[in-house]
Each structure stands twice: as structure tokens, then as C-alpha cells.
Amino acid sequence: MDLETASSVIESVLFVADEPLTVERLTELFDGELDKKTIVEIMERISESYDGRPIQLIEVANGYKLCTKPEYGEWIKKFFREERKRTLSQAALETLAIIAYRQPITTPEIEEIRGVDVSGVLKNLLEKNLVKIMGRKDVIGRPMVYGTTQRFLEHFGLKSLSDMPSLEEFQQVLELDT
């Protein structure tokens, strides 16, 4: 298959895909005819072709996704007649941050850091599919341990967990403050 055709196929698939498209999924699609490196190069070229257009190709949740640019968000919001904010509460964000950096983590461990009960917030995050149960910890009582999901990465536009700044950076900021 020539690269031109491959590029068109990939762009078409990107157009219809409703979740981030991974390079692995695409190598499967082409029955291994294209290697990962070629696919990444094609992605880069597709991405560049959207320069100056309202659409962008973003890297999120370990894959690629076609999205609108943020400057048109207000219009799309209006189009969908969205009333409610899609943003999370402070409690949800703090709990998510703790889970993201410390996963797999149990409920008491989260509560130890936040100093408050988190069962309600956790239930909410589970319902929203931003966190998931990863299994059970091998200690007395076998408590459940939680971790973040793909949906979490998508919500915050993160490529992967390693895309998050290291916690130590935050530590430094506080020490400079005081």
C-alpha cells in the first residue's frame, strides 16, 4: 500500500473513531503492513495538515483523536445546549490527583492524605468512569485499590500518566513560597 492511501485510510478512521486511536490498533488494521514508525510519521503529517483549521489532531490517552480547537468550545456548547458545567468539584479533583499519583491506592490511604471521608466522592468518580477498581490489596480485610482510567486521561487531555508533572515540582513551589 502506498503511503498516500495509508494516510487517507488513517484520516478516515480518525474521523469516525469515538475513542483515541492507538498505533497498535492501526498496525492491526493494516495487518502489520505498516510499522509503528511509519504510522507515527503519517500522524505527524496529518496533524500538520490541520494547521490553520478549526480541527486538530491531539495525542491523548495513549492514542490520537480528532477534536475541535478550544476557541470554538463556546459555540459547540451552545449548539449542544449544554447547561451544566462539565467541570469537577474541588473534592473530586483532589481525590483524583491523589489517586493518579499514588495508584493503586486504598480508600483509607486517600483519606489519610485528605483528612476527610472520601466515600461519596469516590463513588461519584467511579460512576463517571474517571477511576476504576484495580483489585484488592493483600493485607487484612483485603481492601479494594483504585486507579485512574482512560477516561481520566481524556478528560484532562493527557497523553499518558507520565505526562503529568512530577509531585516533587509542587513541593518545591511551596518551599519557595514560605
Binding site: D18, C67, P70, G73, K77, T87, A97, G157, F170
Partner: peptide
């Protein structure tokens, strides 16, 4: 540290809540 991390997430969220995909 985690409230700062949460603040970072909030900033990302405020950008990405305006980015729409399928």
C-alpha cells in the same frame, strides 16, 4: 502537594472542556 496537583488538573480541565471530539 496534592491541592497544587489538583489545581494543575483544574487548569487542564478548563482547556479541555472546550475541546470536543466524537
Amino acid at each position: 502537594k496534592f491541592t497544587d496537583a489538583a489545581e494543575g488538573l483544574r487548569e487542564r480541565e478548563s482547556v479541555f472542556m472546550n475541546v470536543y471530539g466524537r
